[in-house]
C-alpha cells in the first residue's frame, strides 16, 4: 500500500507491504518526524481488528527513507524515481535472508510444516508407482460373481465393480493397474478364485532403479528469517541468516500473566514463544529480536537487547547515529 507519494525534482514514494510486516514497530521508533504509528498489534494479530500494523501521517513524512532502511523484513520500501533505495548504492543494505539449496533438498516438506509464515513454496514430483513395482493382475470374468469382496478389501482402491444394465445389478469389474500394488489380497479373498495376480517385484529388485524425488522449492518474500526451516531440515539444505544478534531480557521483578494474556505469543512472527507453566518462554534459536513481544506485553516484562545487525553501507553520520539505536 502506498503510504506517501510526492513528485518534485525527484519522485519519491513510501510503500508498506503488510504481508511482510510483523508489527515490530522498528520503523515507528526510528522515524525522525514521528509520522509512522504502530497500531494495536495484539488485537490485529488475534484477528479482532482488520487493519494494517502501520499507519502514516503523510503530512508529516519527509520521505527520508530511514524507516525503509531500518526494516529488516523489507515491509517498507522507499522508491526514488521508481528505484528501491536499497538498490541505490548510497543507501544502507540488509544482508539477512534465508535460502534453500534445491540440490540438497530431499523434498520431505518438514520446512513447509514448520514455517510460521507459510513462506515456503513447495511442489514435488513423485515417481510413477508402476516404475517401482513389477507384477501382473487379471480377472476371469466368467468366474467373477461381482460380490465386491475384492473391491472392499483392496487397500489401494484399485478395483471398481459397476453395473451396466438397467436393473443396477453389478456386472462389470475393472482393475486400475496404475493403483494396484500386486499385494494379492483380492486374489486370496476371492470366493471364486477368479483373480490371477503375480508379484515379481522382489525378483526384479536389482533392476528397479531408485527414483530421485524432484520438485520446486523456494522461500517467498514474507519470510522473517526465524530459522525454523533450517532447524527441521534433515538434509542441511537451508541456510538462514538472521537480521540481529542479541537476546530478549525478562525483568525478574515483574509477573507474567501467562495463559490469561499470551499477547507475546500471539504477536511473535516466529512462533518462538510458548506459555510454559503459565510463563512466557522465548526460544532464542527461532527469535529474530524484532521486539514485537516487548511492545505487546502489557506488563512491560521484556526488553530486546540487540548486539549487532546485518545492516551495512550506512554512509551518513546522522543515519549511522539513528540506525545505530537499533543495536544499543
Amino acid at each position: 500500500m502506498s503510504l506517501v507519494k510526492r513528485e518534485g525534482i525527484e519522485n519519491r514514494e513510501l510503500i508498506h507491504n503488510n504481508d511482510k510486516c510483523v508489527g515490530c514497530g522498528i520503523c515507528a521508533d526510528i522515524c525522525p518526524t514521528e509520522s509512522l504509528r504502530l497500531g494495536p498489534i495484539v488485537p490485529i494479530a488475534r484477528g479482532l481488528l482488520k487493519m494494517d500494523y502501520i499507519s502514516c501521517n503523510a503530512n508529516n513524512c519527509v520521505l527520508c527513507g530511514l524507516c525503509a532502511s531500518a526494516c529488516p523484513f523489507d515491509a517498507l520500501s522507499l522508491e526514488i524515481d521508481g528505484e528501491v533505495i536499497s538498490n541505490i548504492g548510497s543507501y544502507p543494505v540488509w544482508h539477512n535472508g534465508a535460502e534453500i539449496n534445491d540440490e540438497d533438498c530431499l523434498y520431505c516438506e518438514n520446512c513447509v510444516e514448520a514455517c510460521p509464515r507459510d513462506s515456503i513454496f513447495f511442489k514435488r514430483e513423485l515417481p510413477d508407482r508402476n516404475d517401482l513395482l513389477v507384477g501382473t493382475i487379471s480377472v476371469n470374468e466368467d468366474d467373477c460373481i461381482y460380490c465386491k469382496v475384492c473391491s472392499e478389501l483392496c487397500p489401494a482402491e484399485a478395483i471398481t465393480i459397476s453395473s451396466n444394465n438397467e436393473f443396477g445389478i453389478p456386472d462389470t469389474i475393472e482393475i486400475n493397474e496404475d493403483k494396484c500394488v500386486y499385494c494379492q489380497v483380492c486374489k486370496r479373498a476371492c470366493p471364486q478364485n477368479a483373480i490371477k495376480a503375480v508379484c515379481s517385484t522382489c525378483m526384479h529388485q536389482e533392476e528397479i532403479e531408485k527414483p530421485k524425488i524432484t520438485g520446486t522449492i523456494f522461500i517467498e518474500q514474507n519470510c522473517v528469517n526465524c530459522g525454523w526451516c533450517e532447524s527441521v531440515c534433515p538434509a542441511d539444505a537451508v541456510k538462514v541468516n538472521k537480521p540481529f544478534v542479541g537476546e530478549v531480557l525478562r525483568d525478574p521483578e515483574l509477573v507474567c500473566k501467562g495463559e490469561t494474556c499470551h499477547a507475546c505469543q500471539d504477536v511473535c512472527p516466529c512462533n518462538a514463544i510458548e506459555i510454559i507453566d503459565n510463563e512466557s518462554s522465548i526460544d532464542p534459536s527461532h527469535c529474530v529480536l524484532c521486539g514485537a513481544c516487548a511492545k505487546a506485553c502489557p506488563q512491560h516484562l521484556l526488553t530486546v537487547k540487540r548486539d549487532s545487525m546485518k545492516l551495512d553501507n550506512i554512509q551518513s553520520p546522522s543515519w549511522k547515529s539513528i540506525l545505530g539505536k537499533l543495536v544499543e
Binding site: P43, K257, P298, Q299
Partner: peptide
C-alpha cells in the same frame, strides 16, 4: 480479573 492489563493497553 487476572490483572493482565490487556484491556487497559488496547
Amino acid at each position: 480479573c487476572d490483572e493482565c492489563d490487556l484491556c487497559i493497553q488496547n
